[in-house]
Design a protein around this nucleic acid. Sequence first.
DNA 1: CTGAAAGCGCTAACAT
DNA 2: ATGTTAGCGCTTTCAG
Lengths: 339, 339
Amino acid sequence: MAGSHKRAVTSYDVAKAAGVSQSAVSRAFTEGAKISPTTKEKVRKVAAELGYRPSFIAQSLITRRSTLIGIVVPGLVNPFYAAILDELSHKLNVMGYRVLLFSMYRDDDTTPIMEEILRHRVEALVLVSSSLSSHFAQECQQMDLPVLLLNRKVDSQSVSSVTSDNLGGGAAIADFLLDIGHQQLAFIAGRDTSSTSFDREMGFRQRLEERGARPPLRDSGMWSIEEAMNATRRLMALPTPPDALFCANDMMAIAALNVAVGEMGMQAGRDISVVGFDDIAMSNWPLINLTTWVQPLAAMVESAIAVLKTQLENPQAAPVQHVLKGELVVRGSTRPQRC
Amino acid sequence: MAGSHKRAVTSYDVAKAAGVSQSAVSRAFTEGAKISPTTKEKVRKVAAELGYRPSFIAQSLITRRSTLIGIVVPGLVNPFYAAILDELSHKLNVMGYRVLLFSMYRDDDTTPIMEEILRHRVEALVLVSSSLSSHFAQECQQMDLPVLLLNRKVDSQSVSSVTSDNLGGGAAIADFLLDIGHQQLAFIAGRDTSSTSFDREMGFRQRLEERGARPPLRDSGMWSIEEAMNATRRLMALPTPPDALFCANDMMAIAALNVAVGEMGMQAGRDISVVGFDDIAMSNWPLINLTTWVQPLAAMVESAIAVLKTQLENPQAAPVQHVLKGELVVRGSTRPQRC
DNA sequence: CTGAAAGCGCTAACAT
DNA sequence: ATGTTAGCGCTTTCAG
């Protein structure tokens, strides 16, 4: 009979086999339940023989706790997201939660995914680098469902978020590039809808302006390797090409490096300076050696967990916006301090 | 009251508000159910106003279908695994399944995770690059739960697996390295427990032997960047260091490149040849430019999906072992054919 | 300490 | 086409 699974062993089956009531079986698998060691042992033994495992589904229905946390990530090709998911899911597992994963493409509509997630009665929802319509934000709030934006924020303060100081990072990079003597800067943006790209650019531009520097050239890499390579090619083909490139994330900076160094034969740190944002693992590899802004990934995940914990304990807790600070790490892709 | 979520809207609430029976509400949300367009509209309107969403939990309990697929990955720092998970979860979502994710460290014991997964009544289980105790293999089979090993196989043919031709890949790399004139080869292994590393090495060694070449030097990188760098340092410090390195995966090959090129100032493709296995995205970057064996990731995921589909339709279907073929892609990290 | 009974939110016969 | 009823597998009063 196609598609028909064998019926799973139920607590009732165990009860019958062990000669006890069904509730005894339940108690045998409930920490701190009133049950004699004797029957507990007996029940557990029979259960093991029969291959009984309490169903989370039935349990969830009655306790109204799914122990599920929904996580939405914008794809996993960017190692930064992969690393976040890795950390996050581990910590959540340790806390006794299971992860319901939704990997979506950047331009997917989140609405159907949100509907799905809510139908699963997740106990909390983490959106990594993606946003939430105000409609759902409101709805989640109404149903006391904790929602957390990680590495993304929205204007309204009604939804919790954990980000790093994108504005400050952009500004520090402007300072750095100016300090080492660059004249013609350029910015390669992520997507226009992204608060992170926006803030990084904003911080960058403002500091440039404050210091009376020329505004940067600009192109968009759409957060994609391919597009960032194209953007780099376009910028370098300009009549007055930039002598320094600030890319909104490491993946795009590495793409720029691949074009400038790999394709055009330039030497990074001499002919051109390239700066990224994130500090993904490979940026530290000798072969890449990218100067970048360190987003404190571990701290961000830690903070996310902390926020989740308080919201889980007290659903009425007010949303919080955490902004963690990062730091510039100077490597070989930028030229040394001018003498 | 801490921790108490607002009770979710139920079909009964909607029924009352819409002046219909509870089953009418159920039918309004069931494709192709016998219900008049009029009441369906009415119910849906009221449901939308109340924010009603059918509970997957209650649905699962009664239909005995969780629409959940468990996926176990050995961490996500290796982009190859991240890419697999990305592909796989997308396709599964499209098929109407949700993904329950478990990211474990390589040396974690899978037993507690397996227990958890089974309690969720997943409809199938995919283990990426990790193995299954014969005990669970048997238990899953008994309960008609499809299990699939992806990028890993076990000796017993009782569990389905999808791999690429690791043996053939290792052999082809031996041929290639010999053909371009290398004398002293070395192999950097993954973990000893890994069938993939084992098969790649086996194919490599056998071909070397067949062609009367010296057996390779050997060290282990434990699938880790750090360890692979250490292994490379050890090998290169030998009295007769190797002139060519075959690493059991791309991450370790890139680590080797980082040491040989970045640290020791060698030029890859001239002073030494390095070959990887997987063909992760970054291996194709000009800055890395790694010669490697292409594991057909898309085809492997496709095949995994196909296997899953048949097993899902017919739980009694016999396990299958799919071995897909890959191909060598020659890039700059190996020296050109000798003239 | 243990069993009986109620019911979590829903689907699927079964009636009407 | 619609309502009524009986569970899905479990936790949790409530008696005993």
